[in-house]
């Protein structure tokens, strides 16, 4: 910032007419006020209360006392939490990559000149409006009963036992459900992005003899850079908070093999009577997610095409 140049211009008092223009009418503040109040009461206040209880030994009921930062110290020695972090990040990274590849491919197909385009777009959006819990229980049934039955009939021995029943493969089931459900929203964002690309670019490229792949890597992908960024950031953030999918499919099992951090916080905090301790876990996780989203935005925005 070149402060020396810009300052003198600001120093003098602006003419009265200009000051009059700058003043924001009070009605705008009044319009914002209800939202701010609701946000503060239902979001900021609970967040601060939660942060407060992370400094106590509160069990969720009864008496409690201050324990300082002891909960935070104990968190770092808890291997169950490290395991939950390991699972959550593996799941989130795999799902983010898979969902973006699939969503982009489907979006490009739905943006082409195909029949029943609007109908297909509607169909592909359906998973987004279904409740994850309900879909999860349906997938649970499919994985536990239908897939093994089909595999048995076809003689595929490796799939005759439910993938949810083995600690090594259960996470794949969670990924499949999550990607299926999350792709719908990402498709819509990519479709919106694809529609911003001027068709002249493709016409010019076609005249120059560019192959479809060349067109994709040189025109389509760079032009939807901003949409790619937002999809990557939002899906990673959502997958890091994975909860419903796991509760309905595996409940964190078999064993603790698919215990995500949110599931661990819920289990320990609400069912295990360690509200204070798991709230500390949640506070740390909040900062982890903020940091990751921030870093991700910085890196991805740098490579977006500017036009």
């Amino acid at each position: 910032m070149s402060t020396d140049v810009s300052r003198p211009a600001r120093r003098g008092t602006p003419p009265p007419a200009m000051r009059q223009d700058r003043r924001v009418p009070r009605v705008f503040y009044l319009m914002v006020l209800p939202a701010v109040a609701l946000f503060a009461v239902f979001h900021t206040l609970p967040l601060l209360t939660g942060m407060f209880f992370s400094l106590t030994n509160y069990a969720g009921y009864g008496e409690w006392s201050f324990v300082g930062l002891q909960n935070y110290v104990n968190l770092f020695g808890d291997d169950r939490i490290y395991n939950a972090y390991g699972f959550t990040f593996l799941f989130a990274i795999v799902s983010t990559i898979a969902v973006n590849i699939i969503a982009l491919a489907v979006a490009i197909a739905l943006n082409g000149r195909i029949r029943f385009k609007t109908g297909f777009r509607g169909i592909f959006f359906i998973p987004n409006i279904l409740s994850i819990l309900i879909v999860g229980y349906v997938f649970n049934y499919v994985f536990s009963n239908s897939v093994p039955a089909i595999a048995e009939a076809l003689g595929i021995t490796s799939l005759t036992t439910s993938i949810l029943a083995s600690p090594d493969t259960a996470w794949i089931g969670v990924v499949i459900l999550s990607v299926w459900q999350a792709a719908a929203f990402n498709i819509i964002i990519y479709l919106a992005g694809l529609q911003t690309i001027p068709t002249e670019l493709y016409e010019a490229a076609a005249l120059d003899g560019a192959t479809p792949w060349k067109q994709f890597t040189s025109i389509t992908f760079p032009m939807i850079g901003a949409f790619f960024t937002i999809n990557m950031v939002l899906s990673l953030k959502n997958f890091l908070q994975v909860f419903d999918q796991i509760i309905s499919l595996t409940a964190g099992g078999p064993g603790t093999s698919t215990e995500s951090i949110s599931v661990l916080i819920y289990r320990g905090g609400f069912q295990g009577g360690e509200y204070g301790y798991q709230t500390a876990n949640a506070v740390i996780y909040l900062f982890v997610i903020i940091a990751i989203s921030f870093i991700q935005l910085r890196i991805l925005q740098r490579r977006e095409a500017s036009f």
Partner: peptide
């Protein structure tokens, strides 16, 4: 056992071949 110890999960792991 304390409620925060996930006994059923560990037993499940064991019975599945742990």
């Amino acid at each position: 056992l304390p409620a925060s110890l996930p006994l059923p999960q560990y037993l499940q792991e064991l019975a599945l071949g742990g």
